[in-house]
Design a protein around this nucleic acid. Structure first.
Lengths: 193, 193
DNA sequence: TTTGTCATCTTGACAGTGTAAAGATAGCTG
DNA sequence: CAGCTATCTTTACACTGTCAAGATGACAAA
């Protein structure tokens, strides 16, 4: 490693640089060449680590999703019962994106969202935040001794997800920050009926 | 008009061509030059009608929003009471985008959504579909003799909007079509409590 | 040590992009 | 008719993603 011909850990550096660029001026301002430049590396160097611009973007998305997951977990950890866990998680889901709408646009905005969620005809069962939501939901059912058919479960989860995701989406696309307390009110009401 | 030097109605032709390209291969495949080519016109001709690529995209979005509005109105027209109107509208909101997810990604996906919703620090009060939703909501309150404070109204509307929008968003981003009946179940339950 | 292999990085090239500037065209107004 | 002006063409430029050919150096085998 070092500052000679070989960078040392270019792959991660490219991801970080890309993330920085997105934070500064959104995805539309992200170019492979700028990312490379920021790493003091030639414009074609990224191709040793990513076959595509898309593949770099994918890696950056995974990085963002990682931060997202960490915040969700942390919020859950602070709760003292399952009901609170779900509410905390919902609030954090929205808050995370309200804090920087660019992330929402980046993750769910641009082109091939399917690629990132890697959905195989079902709303992605291994998209980490979704898995987490699912676990919390099942925990909730268990804690309340509720029995549900598989169909009812799917329905509940979609309902739960779409309410927080819709809130985040609207908050991010309208840029309205004043409604944060409304979100709170709505999310405090999150429960499975 | 005519096929000589001047096109006749290039502006609309460009919008139509752009719409077609998006339908065929998504927004990421849309370029000013392709649009111009499809209209048998030089690559710089669009600049007589749009100052920007962004301005053309904006015009296309307005066109899509127009179609969207027409379907919403039609759905409302088929209802026989206010409750049904709201449910129909909600279902159509989701169905319209499920029918062609590219439109959802185009409208709410790419970069400057704010520009399209032209929000001035409030969730767009002159974004047509939102205005329609608001009207329907007020009609609903009136029909049921319900009184609400302004804050409660805002809260209800956000709730209403985010539930249908979140559903549409998830449907479009996951590409899950099988859940259309779930959407129906959820949306049949749309009511202000 | 020497040799060879291989991932990594550079250089150079290419087609496609958005956009600006300067000029051509033709329809409209006087 | 003359002139104006919106519309369209041509030319040019910087920037993009991507590819191919080569340079570099780390590391393993000899």
């Amino acid at each position: 490693m070092g500052d000679g011909y070989h960078h040392g850990n270019l792959r991660q550096a490219l991801i970080d640089a890309g993330l920085k660029l997105i934070n500064e001026s959104g995805e539309e301002n992200l170019s492979l060449r700028k990312v490379a430049l920021q790493c003091n590396v030639s414009h074609a160097a990224p191709y040793a680590h990513f076959k595509d611009k898309e593949e770099l973007i994918e890696a950056i998305k995974e990085s963002v999703t990682g931060s997202f997951m960490r915040e969700l977990q942390e919020a859950i950890g602070k709760a003292s019962n399952v009901d609170e866990e779900i509410v905390n998680m919902g609030k954090t889901y929205v808050t995370f994106f309200v804090k920087n709408p660019d992330y929402f646009k980046f993750l769910f905005g641009s082109q091939n969202i399917e690629a990132h969620l890697r959905c195989d005809n079902e709303y992605k069962d291994d998209y980490p935040p979704f898995v987490l939501l699912k676990e919390e939901y099942l925990k909730y059912l268990d804690a309340h001794n509720m029995r549900r058919s598989d169909d009812e479960k799917e329905l509940d989860i979609i309902k739960l997800w779409s309410s927080v995701h819709g809130l985040a989406s609207i908050a991010c696309m309208t840029g309205v920050k004043t409604s944060l307390d409304w979100n709170d009110k709505i999310l405090s009401d999150l429960r499975i009926t």
